[in-house]
Structure formats: structure tokens, C-alpha cells
């Protein structure tokens, strides 16, 4: 069908491998996403804490620099699991804001413009569509969470020596698993909200609501019933527990209280939900998201 021929012609060339076609969606989406100068600027800002992290690691191992800056190495935060956990959590908050900016319109825009039949009438399945849309977030969020964190871990391992690397290899797995769980959760939730709410602003509001309203409600439950089990519905608290579990900083008991029943004093210990419960709750949320996506991502909605 050459321009000069102006006739209908079949395509007889080679085709791309089927497994790689879901990556077409993020490739085209990035063009659109980075058209916004505001977003690009924010995305660059997301790397600022990583720069601080890199400087801190460098200072720990550079006596000359410490002398020049007149800093005692003991005044610096030690490079351990807690150090990496702090920065992983910090990057996780940036990941949340990136998701708020680019997640809501991803599916909503296609639903609003009836674009799904155009995707799904091709050799492209619903799973590949969802995977493609999620990849937009997964790739961007990976770029500001676990990928640079692992690079910084390697940097620290390079400066700290083989002994440090072997002793702390588990931190690398904690960085990877913790970040991946968080970005998967963000990607799934934003896709669901995007599929359910067609307006971008409302979808962004809904996404914020999903994170903050249950946290507030959970805190009310905690205060009313003198417990920590209200955290089971707070996504932030769940992720904090999971992350703490992975970095070995999880503390089950987070509060004590003395309750007076008449003249009898009773000691109440407030325990966080066990780690398995946090993992289970996160898994359940992901399953619900997948079920909702399966219901909403269809070429045409059937009115029964």
C-alpha cells in the first residue's frame, strides 16, 4: 500500500514476537507523559533524595572529604538496614505522587473514548492490555525506587568491601521485594480507579481517598478499641509493616496502656497485626483489584 500506488496491499513482512507486544503501550505512553514539563521536572526531583543517599554513602568512606567538611564519621547516619529502609520509604512516597499524576488517566482515557475494542480486536489480549498499562507505572516507578536503590547498594558494597556485601546481601533483597510490592500495589490500585472512574481529577481524588480514608478510619478503630488492628485496613501501615519485616526492623508491640477497671489496674499491650496478616491483607487487595480489572477491561460492556 505504498503512498504512490494508492492500492490496498497486505502486509507480508515479519512480525514482532507476541510476548513483547505489551511493551508497545508504555513506549507510546512515555511520549505523552514526558510531554508535560511539569511532570518531567517532578520526575527529576524524585532523584534528589537518591543523590543525598549517594553523597552520604560516599562521605562514609572518604576520610579526606570528611576532614575537609570537618565532620566526624560518627555524626553520620550508619549505613545499615535502617539507612536503606529510610530511603526506600522516602522513594515510596515519591512513587505515590508519580502514580497520582500519571495513573488515573491510563485506562480511563481509553474507556471514555471507546478505545478498548480497537486494542482488543487485534492479537492483543485483555491481560496484555492490563500488563501494558501497568508497565507504564511499573517502569517509571522502578526507575525511582528499587533500581537506583540497588545501584546505591552496589556502590556501598563496592566501597564497603566484599565482607560488607556478603553480610548485607539480604538488604538488597529487602530493597527489591519491598519496592516491587509497593509499586505493584500502586499500579494495580491506580488501574482499578482509572477503570472505574472516567474523569482524571475524580480518579486522582479517589486514589488519594483509598490511601488516606481507611488510614483515618483505622486510627479511629485503634483509638476506640485500644488496639493496633485498625492498621489492617490502612495501606500505608500495611506497607510500613511489610517493609519493616523485610528490613528486620519490625516491632510487634508498639504501645502500652494502663486501664483502670474500678480500682483494678490492667496493663494493655498494643500489638501491631502480625506480619502474615499484613501480607495476607495486601494479597487480598491485589486479588480484588485484579477481579475488578477483569470485570471492567472488556471490549464492550454487556448490559444483561
Amino acid at each position: 500500500m505504498a503512498v504512490y500506488e494508492q492500492t490496498y496491499k497486505q502486509y507480508l513482512g515479519k512480525l514482532t514476537p507476541e510476548w513483547s507486544r505489551f511493551l508497545i503501550i508504555p513506549r507510546h505512553a512515555f511520549r505523552d507523559v514526558f510531554k508535560s514539563k511539569l511532570f518531567t521536572a517532578f520526575f527529576i526531583v524524585c532523584f534528589a533524595p537518591l543523590l543525598v543517599e549517594a553523597i552520604l554513602i560516599y562521605l562514609h568512606h572518604n576520610v579526606n572529604a570528611l576532614a575537609l567538611l570537618r565532620i566526624n564519621v560518627r555524626e553520620l547516619i550508619p549505613i545499615d538496614a535502617y539507612f536503606f529502609q529510610t530511603f526506600v520509604n522516602l522513594q515510596a512516597s515519591f512513587a505515590f505522587f508519580v502514580t497520582l499524576l500519571i495513573g488515573p488517566p491510563l485506562v480511563a482515557r481509553d474507556l471514555r473514548n471507546n478505545a478498548l475494542p480497537l486494542y482488543l480486536c487485534r492479537p492483543f489480549s485483555r491481560t496484555e492490555y492490563v500488563l501494558g498499562k501497568m508497565s507504564v507505572l511499573l517502569i517509571l516507578l522502578s526507575a525511582i525506587t528499587w533500581i537506583p536503590q540497588l545501584l546505591l547498594f552496589c556502590f556501598q558494597a563496592y566501597l564497603g568491601g566484599a565482607g560488607w556485601f556478603v553480610d548485607n546481601l539480604w538488604i538488597a533483597s529487602a530493597i527489591f521485594i519491598g519496592s516491587v510490592v509497593w509499586i505493584l500495589l500502586l499500579a494495580l490500585l491506580s488501574q482499578v480507579v482509572s477503570a472505574l472512574v472516567k474523569w482524571r481529577v475524580v480518579a486522582s481524588g479517589a486514589l488519594l481517598g483509598i490511601f488516606f480514608i481507611p488510614s483515618v478510619f483505622g486510627e479511629v478503630v485503634n483509638q476506640l478499641f485500644v488496639t493496633r488492628w485498625g492498621n489492617i485496613i490502612s495501606l500505608g501501615a500495611l506497607m510500613n509493616n511489610v517493609s519493616a519485616g523485610l528490613f528486620g526492623t519490625f516491632v510487634r508491640t508498639t504501645g502500652h496502656m494502663t486501664d483502670f477497671d474500678g480500682n483494678v489496674a490492667r496493663e494493655i499491650v498494643m500489638n501491631e497485626p502480625p506480619l502474615w496478616a499484613s501480607w495476607f491483607a495486601l494479597g487480598l487487595i491485589c486479588m480484588i483489584c485484579l477481579a475488578l480489572l477483569s470485570r471492567k477491561v472488556k471490549a464492550y460492556e454487556v448490559v444483561k
Binding site: 512480525l15 507476541e18 505523552d32 482515557r109 481509553d110 471514555r112 473514548n113 471507546n114 478505545a115 475494542p117 480497537l118 480486536c121 487485534r122 492479537p123 492483543f124 489480549s125
Partner: peptide
Amino acid sequence: AKHIRALVGYMPERDSFIAK
């Protein structure tokens, strides 16, 4: 279905496009 969809083209009735 996937193989079939590789062989067919579809022009839907309703307005269908990708915005922006």
C-alpha cells in the same frame, strides 16, 4: 481467537480512538 484477530481488521460503529 488471537490468530483470527491477526487476520482481521475491525472498524467499530461508535466513535473509537485514542485521545491526544
